[in-house]
C-alpha cells in the first residue's frame, strides 16, 4: 500500500463521518410521518401521532404482498416481503427523520419524515 492509499481511506472516512453527522443533526424523533412509496409514487402516508396502537399496512406487488407494521413507540418495520433477499426485513425499525427502509426487488420504500408545523418556513438560510 502506498501513502496515497492511506490518504484515500482517510478521505472516505471523513466523507462518511461528515455525511453521517450532517444527517444526525437534522434527525428529530418528535413528530414523524411515515411515507410508503411503491415505484416512483407515494401510496400511503401515515402520521405517527394518528396511531394509538401498532397498525399493519399491506402493499401488493406483482410477486405478492409486502407487510409493513407501524408502531407509535418503536417506529416502522417490514414484517414480511416476497423478495428473495429479505434485506428489508433485517433492517428492523426506523424511527428518526430521514431514515428509510428499501425493498429493492419489490420497489417498496418506507421513509420517516418530520412533520412540518403550519406556518413554519421550508428552509432558513443564514
Amino acid at each position: 500500500m502506498r501513502k496515497n492509499d492511506y490518504l484515500l481511506i482517510l478521505l472516505i472516512i471523513l466523507l462518511a463521518a461528515g455525511s453521517h453527522l450532517f444527517m444526525k443533526a437534522n434527525a428529530t424523533n418528535t413528530d414523524l410521518t411515515f411515507e410508503i412509496r411503491q415505484g416512483d409514487h407515494v401510496v400511503q402516508t401515515i402520521k405517527r401521532s394518528a396511531l394509538t396502537t401498532a397498525g399493519e399496512f399491506t402493499i401488493s406487488t406483482s410477486d405478492g404482498n409486502v407487510f409493513i407494521e407501524i408502531d407509535p413507540a418503536k417506529g416502522a418495520h417490514i414484517i414480511d416481503s416476497p423478495c428473495p433477499d429479505k434485506l428489508c426485513i433485517h433492517q428492523g425499525y426506523i424511527n428518526k427523520n430521514g431514515q428509510t427502509i428499501l425493498c429493492l426487488p419489490e420497489k417498496v420504500l418506507v421513509t420517516a419524515v418530520a412533520d412540518r408545523k403550519d406556518g413554519e418556513p421550508d428552509a432558513v438560510l443564514r
Binding site: I9, A16, L109
Partner: peptide, 23 residues
Amino acid sequence: IAMFLMQTTALISYLPLLLIIAI
C-alpha cells in the same frame, strides 16, 4: 441509480454506511 429509479432522495441516508463498508 436507486434514487433515480425510486424518484426519491431519501435513500441518501444509506450513504455513510455504504462508504464505510467500501473500505
